[in-house]
């Protein structure tokens, strides 16, 4: 049985201007011990998806359909109260900016203890010991003293470690990290990524890493899902995505990926244009206004929504170009360019 499976998940928000289709028919699977990277530009629906899995849109204005299967249980139709009991214990989340994501008025230790005691009926003393252990585990020096510090007394990297300690405190089976390193500087980013990789191996959790930085998913992921306008547009193993990507949008992302041998600010092949409106999604392929290949599909790009189809061995692509055209374009037009730059 698949540990986590999304089937045609849709999360739409009614707004004054119309329905915001933040997630629009998303499906994927993830096994224990594996890491899925979800990449996409700002607004592609990554965070909405992760909050949706945790059930945090329940009771709000969101219209949710589809299925989320977690360890044999369906969560979209489950009661909010039931999903709440799974949160923190069965599935946990690490947020982007640990300064704003931790309560400024409670000590780091108190916040970890709270997370632990929701799901474990233990005394404060036991919970405190556990919190110190967790802080130690994520590499915070002098954890028995730092446990009484407030978040603002930590550095950015230490805060993110504490946030990870909090998320892991109940030994979750599914861990979602939403932009876990975006708020940190480069060297600290690398440390946090190392830490997450180690911890995931120890805990054998299923890990979803959400980012708009392909470099981060390259570090961690077994599989990669590329999202655009609430939909998956390419899905495959890390090798598929980095060695033989087949979607023009993925090519664009790879072109804008910061690389060690380049200045970080210098983005050689940025994707032109901006992400589409999620209310009036462009007809046909949502990417077509920005796609330099749209004129090679005989007009289908602007009129017909492409389906997510298997290219080869579980590698899925949502594009009207034929597989051969995509592969030739990658080999002859895109790859040489990326390598040259």
């Amino acid at each position: 049985m698949t540990f986590l499976e999304l089937k045609d998940l849709r999360i739409h928000f009614p707004s004054d201007d119309g329905l915001v289709k933040s997630v629009d028919g998303l499906s994927f699977r993830l096994e224990r011990g594996k890491t899925l990277g979800i990449v996409g530009e700002s607004g592609s629906g990554k965070s909405v998806t992760s909050l949706g899995i945790l059930g945090l849109h329940k009771g709000g204005r969101a219209k949710i359909s589809g299925e989320i299967w977690l360890d044999g249980e369906e969560l979209v139709s489950a009661s909010a109260e039931h999903v709440r009991t799974l949160r923190g214990k069965k599935m946990a989340m690490i947020f982007q900016d640990p300064l704003s994501a931790m309560h400024p008025f409670y000590t780091v230790g108190a916040q970890i203890m709270e997370a632990y005691r929701i799901h474990h009926d233990v005394s404060k003393k036991v919970a405190r010991k556990h919190a110190i252990e967790m802080l130690d585990r994520v590499g915070i020096p002098q954890p028995d003293r730092r446990v009484d510090s407030y978040p603002h007394e930590f550095s950015g990297g230490m805060r993110q470690r504490a946030m990870i300690a909090m998320a892991l405190s109940c030994d979750p089976e599914l861990l979602i990290a939403d932009e876990p390193t975006t708020a940190l500087d480069v060297t600290v980013q690398a440390q946090i990524l190392d830490l997450m990789r180690d911890l995931q191996r120890d805990f054998n959790a299923a890990l979803i890493v959400i980012t708009h930085d392909l470099g981060v998913v390259a570090e961690l992921s077994d599989d990669i899902l590329v999202m655009y306008a609430g939909k998956a547009i390419e899905y495959g193993t890390a090798e598929d995505i980095f060695e033989r990507p087949e979607h023009p949008y993925t090519w664009g992302l790879l072109g804008s990926m910061p690389r060690l041998d380049r200045e970080r600010t210098e983005r050689l092949l940025p994707i032109k244009g901006s992400p589409p409106s999620l209310i009036n999604v462009p007809p046909g392929c949502a990417f077509h206004p920005r796609c330099t290949f749209a004129d090679r599909t005989g007009g289908r790009s602007t009129s017909e929504v492409p389906e997510l189809l298997e290219s080869e061995g579980g590698h899925l692509v949502r594009c009207h170009l034929s597989r051969d055209v995509r592969r030739t374009a990658w080999e002859n037009e895109i790859k040489p360019n990326l390598e040259a730059s």
């Binding site: 909050l51 945790l54 945090l56 709440r84 009991t85 799974l86 949160r87 923190g88 214990k89 946990a92 989340m93 947020f95 900016d97 704003s100 994501a101 931790m102 309560h103 400024p104 008025f105 409670y106 709270e114 997370a115 929701i118 799901h119 909090m166």
Partner: peptide, 24 residues
């Protein structure tokens, strides 16, 4: 954001509101 974190921990809504929201 810390309210979202409190919910993500699995806290009951009442605790989220009083212990985290009102405290803030």
């Amino acid at each position: 954001d810390y309210i979202r974190t409190a919910r993500a921990k699995g806290l009951a809504e009442r605790t989220v509101v009083l212990k985290h929201g009102l405290r803030g």
